[in-house]
Measured scan of single mutants.
Amino acid sequence: VFVDDHLLEKVLELNAKGEKRLIKTWSRRSTIVPEMVGHTIAVYNGKQHVPVYITENMVGHKLGEFAP
């Protein structure tokens, strides 16, 4: 499973602090992992960042699938 390192670091850091804030990313190719559930990730679609709230059903899919 591929997840960009910088994105995973941000998610794990927020989980350690117990925070839930918006994470901006250009990494549409990253796979959604269970650690991301409950976070809102702003995924770049080529024009703007689209906020995507991550749920359990999204695990295993790519971030780009949810930012048309």
Rank of each mutant, 00 (worst) to 15 (best):
L8S: 02
E35K: 04
I23C: 02
E65Q: 11
D4S: 05
H39I: 03
D5G: 15
K47S: 10
A42Y: 03
M36K: 00
V33D: 03
A16K: 14
V52K: 06
V52W: 04
G60A: 12
P68W: 09
A67P: 04
G46H: 13
P68I: 08
I41W: 01
L22G: 03
M58R: 13
L22M: 10
T40S: 09
Q48T: 14
M58C: 09
V59I: 14
V43D: 00
V1R: 04
E9A: 14
E19L: 11
G64N: 07
S30Y: 03
A42Q: 04
V50T: 10
V52E: 02
V33K: 04
R29S: 09
L22V: 14
E9H: 14
V1L: 07
E65V: 09
L12P: 00
L22R: 04
M36C: 04
V3A: 03
I23Y: 01
V11H: 00
E65D: 07
V3D: 04
G46A: 10
Q48K: 11
G46R: 10
S30E: 03
I41G: 01
E19M: 08
G60K: 08
I54D: 00
G38P: 00
V1Y: 07
H6C: 15
G46N: 07
R21V: 14
M58N: 10
Q48M: 15
N15C: 02
Y53M: 12
G64Q: 11
H61C: 11
S27Y: 04
E65C: 10
P34N: 12
V43C: 06
E35H: 08
K10S: 13
E56N: 15
K10D: 06
K17F: 06
R28S: 07
A67F: 03
S30M: 03
G38H: 09
E19Y: 06
V50W: 10
S30P: 03
H39W: 06
D4G: 03
H49S: 04
K24N: 07
A67I: 06
K20E: 03
D5W: 15
G38Y: 08
K47V: 14
V50N: 14
H49W: 12
W26H: 15
L14H: 04
L7T: 01
K20W: 07
N45Q: 08
E19K: 07
Y53W: 08
R28K: 06
G60H: 14
T55F: 11
N45S: 06
D4Y: 03
Y44G: 03
K20Y: 11
A67K: 04
Y44E: 02
S27R: 05
V3F: 04
Y44F: 11
I41D: 00
I32Q: 00
V37H: 07
G18N: 08
M58G: 04
V1S: 14
P34G: 13
V43G: 01
K10Y: 11
K17W: 06
E56V: 13
E9D: 11
H49Q: 03
Y44P: 06
N57A: 14
K62F: 09
I54W: 00
I54Q: 00
V11F: 03
M36T: 02
G64M: 12
F2T: 04
V1A: 15
L63H: 01
R29D: 09
L12Q: 10
S30K: 02
Y53D: 11
K62P: 08
D4R: 01
V1T: 09
M36S: 01
G38V: 01
P51D: 06
N15H: 02
E13D: 07
L22Y: 06
T55Y: 12
V59Y: 15
D5N: 15
K20T: 07
G64P: 00
R29A: 12
I32D: 00
K47A: 13
D5S: 15
L8Y: 12
F2A: 05
G60P: 02
R28A: 06
H61G: 09
D4K: 02
E9S: 15
L22Q: 07
H6N: 08
A16V: 08
E56R: 12
D5P: 15
T40G: 07
V43M: 02
G64R: 09
V33L: 13
P51E: 12
I41A: 02
T25P: 01
V50K: 13
N15S: 03
L7F: 01
E65L: 11
F66P: 02
P68V: 10
E13R: 08
T31M: 11
H6W: 15
N45W: 08
E56S: 14
V43H: 01
H61A: 13
V37F: 14
G38E: 10
L22E: 10
L12K: 14
Y44H: 11
V52N: 07
V37N: 10
Y53K: 11
H39Q: 02
N15F: 02
V3G: 03
N45H: 06
A67R: 03
E35F: 08
G18I: 02
L63I: 06
G64F: 09
Y53H: 08
I54T: 04
M36W: 01
G64D: 09
N57R: 09
